[in-house]
Simulated assay, not measured.
Amino acid sequence: MSLGDDNDGFGGGGSGQTRTRLPEGGSGDPYDDTRRPPARSSRSLITVVGVVVLLIAAIAFANRGGGDGETDNTSGTSPTAGNRNPTSATGVRPVTGKNGQIPTGFARDEQGAQSAAANFSVALVSADILKPDRRREIVRQLFVQDKVAELEGSFDKAYNRDFLDKLGLDANGNAAAGLTYVSRTAPVGTKVTQFSEGAATVEVWCTGVFGTAGVSSTNPVTNDWFTITLALRWADNDWKVETFSQKEGPAPVNTDRTASDADAIAKAVEEYGGFTYAR
């Protein structure tokens, strides 16, 4: 599902897709080779090498983070600044707070802004955004207070009855009996283009599956690639969306993999849960 025409700023319907021990010491002169048979020296060397390898492995494992009792890195530093490999995960765990189905309590730094933007993108291009009651909850959770009323009207206008009819959905955003509407977004990467203490602009590169699964569907489930740009503001002790827009791509070359049938797609959507995304 598309949020609409490129850079429309509010997500209106448009022409896009519905879419990480020391060697044992002996007494006496440690350099006296007469007291150290060659065989023992060889075994000691192997032992030392083995211990060093284990220590390196242990350090690498510890640096991955994510274990119980570890402390999150929310010191306010920017882990992405000067990062030579910006698409790599940092290893910092996602936030633990949640308002409904949407994570909350992001750090007031670049990484926190990226995590917020990724999670907000998932909500903005979801099946729930087409359901009027759920849409109002999402808008009030994601957007700064002074934009809520305006955006509620814009969303309602964009996702009007005609738009829902084209997707095979009723006025409440529900598919007909025997059909399952699919709108599942997966962020592929994030990039901060502007950042200050109180504001940030983040681009989120996404892919996803969108459409209606079912034998009689006239809007089959397809995949799409797009980039959402979110202008964020620090408000109410968290990141909130001020404005956003969408553009197509970057998209890879499609493979020739055989498409799954409608039942398999509908079953996958019901059985596989979504994620909380963190940079």
Rank of each mutant, 00 (worst) to 15 (best):
G11A: 06
Y31T: 15
S41I: 08
A213P: 05
L3I: 02
Y159I: 00
A116P: 00
A186L: 14
L151A: 03
T276Q: 08
E248P: 02
V92G: 02
A60G: 15
D165V: 01
S44A: 08
A127K: 11
D32N: 15
T34D: 15
S78H: 13
T18L: 08
V253Q: 15
V53M: 14
R35I: 09
A264G: 06
I265M: 06
R35W: 09
T201A: 04
F61G: 12
E248V: 13
N83M: 14
D133W: 03
T77A: 11
V215G: 09
D6G: 10
G67M: 15
A213L: 05
G208V: 00
A231S: 13
N172A: 14
E150C: 04
A158H: 02
K157T: 07
I265K: 06
V202R: 00
A266L: 07
D162N: 14
G16R: 03
G76Y: 09
G69E: 03
V144E: 01
D165H: 09
D109P: 02
E271L: 11
R134W: 05
E137H: 10
S88M: 11
D256E: 09
Q246E: 15
D72K: 14
D68H: 15
E248Y: 08
P187M: 09
V139P: 02
A116D: 01
R257A: 15
P252V: 07
S44T: 05
T96H: 12
G11E: 00
F106K: 05
G76N: 11
A58R: 11
E24R: 15
D146F: 10
N73F: 12
A127N: 07
G12A: 08
G13H: 05
G214N: 02
A62E: 14
A89P: 11
Q101G: 14
A251Y: 07
Q194R: 08
D170N: 15
K166W: 01
G168E: 01
L164Y: 02
T218R: 12
G97T: 10
S42F: 09
K131T: 00
E150V: 09
G168M: 08
S154K: 14
A113E: 04
C206F: 07
